[in-house]
Design a protein around this nucleic acid. Sequence first.
DNA 1: ATGTCACCTGGTAGGTGA
Length: 257
Amino acid sequence: MQLATWNVNSLAVRLPQVLAWLAANPVDVLVLQETKLADDKFPHAEIEAAGYRAQWHGQKTYNGVALLSRADAADALKNIPGCDDPQARVITATVGGVRVVGGYMPNGQAPGTDKFEYKMQWFRALRDWLRDELARHPRLVLMGDFNIAPEDRDVHDPELWRGQILCTDEEREQFRKLIALGLHDAFRLFEQPPKSWSWWDYRNLAFRRNQGLRIDHILVSEALRPRVSACCIDKLPRKNERPSDHAPVVVTLDAAA
DNA sequence: ATGTCACCTGGTAGGTGA
């Protein structure tokens, strides 16, 4: 079973790239972030024609998430239950016995801003709900754009980025607290090439210079950890014309014993 | 040195968010 996450930065613009990527990478589950589409604009016909079912939680202009799956998706949820959030950031469903949580975590803009405080509160709410969700669904994957580079090795220039948004100690603490629920960063279960990033700013020729950050993550629960056989970042779509600024991240799970 | 992109409103640009 393969699952992937991709921040597409507008599904209206990126739909052809998503369909092409799925044709080349027929993963079982793909969660998308920043669809930026109201629910009635979601391209479900095109996605179904490509062989995928879709759950989506949309929003005009900002945010918006979706969960595409080859098999049936059951018990879908939108956003964090019990958290009254007007921003569309989470889509959850059970596929093939795995509880899949796709998230577009808040960016936070800059430390000290209202948006940063929202980010902190949002992660607290996510953690409080996930604790219960993990008890109900031991086989769980949390993946998406976390907007956090967990460690210095996830940053092309740690000194330049120190204390900046995506890299603050407070954000990294939020990431560690998610891990402490009993989750594992699938990417770090394997030896990886140095300077592996999932996001490159559109500015400053950042991709050409490989000046990026690893902020898109796939966290797997303890019960799933023995099944993880690979996890990699697919940089190819970042080389497309009109690319998203993010690359997909893919995890491979062996069949249950 | 700087270097973008997507989307909105309300226009033949400017603002916002990332």
